[in-house]
Design a protein around this nucleic acid. Sequence first.
DNA 1: GCCAACGTTGGC
DNA 2: GCCAACGTTGGC
Length: 156
Amino acid sequence: MKYWLMKSEPDDISIDDLRDSANHTMSWQGIRNYQARNFIRDEISTGDSVLFYHSSCKVPGVVGIASVINQPQLDVSAFDPQSRYFDPKSDLNKPRWWQVDIQFTKKLNQIVSLQQLKSDPALQNMLLVTKGARLSVQPVTALEFEHIVKLSQTAE
DNA sequence: GCCAACGTTGGC
DNA sequence: GCCAACGTTGGC
C-alpha cells in the first residue's frame, strides 16, 4: 500500500464535501499536471491511503484521511465541453488525463497546518514543504503519514 | 530544441 | 491582491 497527499481548495471541494457526498466517495477529476497525472495513472492503486490537504485558504494543512477505492481510469471530464476541466486536445484513443475514486475515511481531530509541517524536523523531506513544490498529488512515506496522523492527535 | 511569453498555483 | 516559482505553449 502506498501513501499520498492530495490538495484541494476547500472553497471548491473540502473534506466535508467528500464526507457528505454519495457513498462518501468522489471521483478525483481535473488533475491537469503531467507529474501528478503520472502518479495517478501509473502508481496509485486500490487501497492506498490519502492525506487530504486544504490549499489556498486561511489555514492550509492536512485535514483528513481518505482511501483510494478503484484503479485509475480515464478522466472523462476532459472530454466534456461543459466541464471546467475540458481539454480539447485530449484524445479518447490516447487518453491524457486520469482519475481515481477516493472515499472519505475520517477527519483529523484538528488540522495539521502547513506551518506545523514546515517546522517539524521529521517532515523536512516532504515534497510539500520543499520550495516551489506545487504538485497536487504527491507521494508521502508511511512514516510521514503516521507522523502527521499522530500530530493531529496531540494537543497543541 | 530553445526560450520568451503567458498561465497557474498557492502561501502570504 | 500580490507575486515568486513553476509549468505550458508555440514561434523560430
